[in-house]
Design a protein around this nucleic acid. Sequence first.
DNA 1: CTTGTATACTTGAGTACGCAACGATCTTAG
DNA 2: CTAAGATCGTTGCGTACTCAAGTATACAAG
Lengths: 145, 145
Amino acid sequence: MAAWLRFLRAHAAITRELSVRLEEQHGLTLSDFDVLVQLYHAEGRAMRRVDIARQVLLTASGITRLLDGLEHSGLVEKRPCQSDARVSYAALTEAGVRKIEAARETHHADIQELFGSNFERGEQETLAELLGRLPLAPTAEACSG
Amino acid sequence: MAAWLRFLRAHAAITRELSVRLEEQHGLTLSDFDVLVQLYHAEGRAMRRVDIARQVLLTASGITRLLDGLEHSGLVEKRPCQSDARVSYAALTEAGVRKIEAARETHHADIQELFGSNFERGEQETLAELLGRLPLAPTAEACSG
DNA sequence: CTTGTATACTTGAGTACGCAACGATCTTAG
DNA sequence: CTAAGATCGTTGCGTACTCAAGTATACAAG
């Protein structure tokens, strides 16, 4: 319980500060950054929208609107899928690649400052391990009973 | 970095699920609950709005609107401050006390299920300790240099 | 008293989502 | 082929916030 409360508060405080910095320095929101990083590491630097949604834990509609913005900024472009006309890939543009590479630098430093620097190396690993056990999808057990 | 990503994802997944349940079972949002709990533990079950804001990491305007809703539902009431006409206390009503006591039960169980049950007792304490080191306020150092 | 300046709270406008409903397309069964 | 059902994406609408500006009060200095 104590752990959960601290978890909540820390999340609010840190994401707020990270957002402000990311916005100031690169004009991106945290979710923007998150999506760009996913694309950056994806094969061909392109992904289906559904897969992005699953990865970054937004809903499909959130992704649509978020990508609208990134397309408008020229960081991402739509690309049709030849084998399935329903899907449209979101692909990083050249500008997108440069943007994410630049943003990564400062953003990682910010994360390190606000988050990582509070722990020693071993502690970071412990923390990562513990957090890794938490559920990422709605717990299906609750539905089927 | 890995730890941070897991932190972000876990937060999104767990709060989403907790919100849904809290909404279904008690008609409250996570923030509603959070505020009610603060009031419940406050002296006289009343707090200044500013202090609530600081405690739950919302802005003052967010608190105003959130309390509007709770007042409308009759869980909280406004109470003027005799020594300072600027402040109006938010005070739990009888209904509010009953509501939070009821909600606590299921909400704690939900937190335990989604969050706590992933750890053993010692691990929970470790986690709480580690999370407790994270900053809760915008880091002032960044401003003054 | 008046004139700042700080604090408490509210309000208007904007934003980043979620949910539910929709159209388009794929897939499978007949 | 048609029909039924699942999946991908978008859109309308609602909501929970934030920020910036405004009002009202307190307090301190002249």
